[in-house]
Simulated assay, not measured.
Amino acid sequence: MQGVQFMRTHVKAIIAASMALALAACGNVSHDVAKDGHNAGELVWPAPDSVTPMHKGGTFPNLSNLRQVRSGLNKQQLSDLIGYPHFSEGVWGVREWNYVFNFRKPGSDEVTVCQYKVLFDDNKLARSFYWKPESCAALLAEPAPAAPTAAPAPSKSRVLSADALFAFDKATLTPAGHRALDDLAAELHDQGDKLHSVRIAGYTDRLGGEAYNQKLSQRRADAVMNYLVEQGVPAGRIHAEGHGASDPVKDCPDGPRTQLIACLAPNRRVEVKIDSGD
């Protein structure tokens, strides 16, 4: 008899506890959720501090996952994205899930606390979503795209014939070379503060030794640079470099020297690359 009495008392306690949980859950559940899950007669928001112990204080959601929440997800899919609900209203048999989410302001320790509610239709598919306060919805906005970086300064290239600037096998500017560079200097002056840099590259033909051609190409590039500086182009914006017989623009077969020199003329050149803000 005592055992039967104990069992009855134990069952009553379980029933009372279940009823208490059911009543508590009812306080967290919205009223008259529509069959299609798109609205409810009355939205009920549970007290944030009544979350289950494991969700005490709310959680910091993965924003990328939260942005993927949409109508039509089943409960397993929803839980994969944002976890199971934070309150004790149940998981599988209920028509709504509630969450407490924390959002940290970028570059700050300030935290915004938001409540999030999902309503399901009769088939337990997520259909409508609510925030408290409603302003929390703005926290899901994609970050503004970074301001486009400034386009690189356009470049202008000039190719000057070395034969028009120098005597053959020489690095001293001729009068014709002075006139050609006067025109270039005037163009550079017109750039004003927009002028970023001037890169001068000297080239020779393949006649002569490699070391000799390298030295000759450098002397010619330096001669052009020095003349432009004399004409008022800022020295700090000009760089000169010799490249010898590299990067030929024309290939010529061996033959009589006079004909070969004439054929290789395009390779004897000074390239000027102008970077400006135009």
Rank of each mutant, 00 (worst) to 15 (best):
R95K: 06
E96Q: 05
M225I: 07
R237M: 09
P148K: 02
A185E: 10
A20S: 09
P256S: 06
R127G: 09
K56E: 15
M19K: 12
D122N: 13
F6T: 15
D121W: 13
H239G: 00
T258L: 15
S276Q: 04
S50K: 14
T174G: 02
S71L: 11
D169P: 05
A180H: 09
D182F: 09
D32V: 11
D193L: 00
L160H: 03
K170N: 09
A146Y: 01
L207Q: 12
C252Q: 09
K75R: 03
D122V: 15
D278G: 00
G255D: 05
T52V: 07
N62R: 07
D275T: 12
K156M: 04
P46G: 06
W97D: 11
A25Y: 08
L228V: 12
L216M: 02
E187T: 01
F101K: 00
S155H: 13
V113F: 00
V29Y: 04
H243T: 03
V118A: 12
G244C: 10
A137R: 15
P175R: 14
V94K: 07
A167K: 01
N213G: 01
K12M: 14
L216D: 04
R8T: 01
S79Q: 15
D205Y: 05
K12I: 15
C114T: 00
P256T: 11
H196V: 13
M225P: 12
A47G: 04
